[in-house]
Design a protein around this nucleic acid. Structure first.
Lengths: 99, 99
DNA sequence: ATAACATATGATTTTTATATCATATGAAAT
DNA sequence: ATTTCATATGATATAAAAATCATATGTTAT
């Protein structure tokens, strides 16, 4: 992994497509094609973004024949999402109303 | 605060200027002019970015005469930075070498 | 060896975010 | 009431990131 600054770290996850990939992989590990089908996005877009995620160790893959099965680095992602949820819960009035 | 999506949450902190403001406020609360001097940035740039941070409750301010003294929402920021540090420590070889 | 499938990569266009500049607002001092 | 200091805001220009499209690479099956 390249040595990330705080800015770089957050830039990687501050992106709608990448967060949808993360959501998808959170449900279960998947090949590129499966991710495309799941989130309804084009293959090269997904591959480009998977590279960005993987370069920074937010995801990883293992080879399976001609497929690459990607999975999530949950150790970082889950605590991260918990902080966002907590922040929203204590600062966003609209969010609190929805509970 | 407006109701933030994950993307919006991360977009706010995925910015060099805003992270420098955060660092500055982490050291101590400051007025806008003081922040400008501290991080060597122009006033309107700092104000624009403080608004973005404050709208999302990453910072807040109290009035003091004609000044506004900004401070940090440490409850969110500190755990967040800890996760980044931890991620870097376990995935970045270069970072580990520096220890 | 070639075809078919799965995925990656490079170059360019398009979109989005950021900085900048000029100006407005607000609050205290004279 | 006017000047000065502190900060905010709006519009536009600039820069940066993302999407897109075409194509390349790698892997298995025939």
């Amino acid at each position: 992994m390249k040595c990330l600054s705080y800015t770089q770290f957050f830039e990687v996850i501050a992106n709608k497509t990448r967060l949808r990939i993360i959501e998808s992989l959170f449900r279960s590990p998947k090949s590129v094609t499966e991710i495309c089908n799941d989130i309804k996005e084009e293959q090269s877009k997904v591959s480009h973004n998977l590279k960005i995620l993987t370069d920074c160790s937010f995801s990883e893959f293992k080879k399976d024949g001609k497929k690459r099965v990607y999975s999530l680095n949950e150790k970082t992602i889950i605590p991260l999402m918990n902080i966002v949820d907590k922040h929203a819960a204590s600062h966003c009035k609209k969010c609190q109303m929805l509970k």
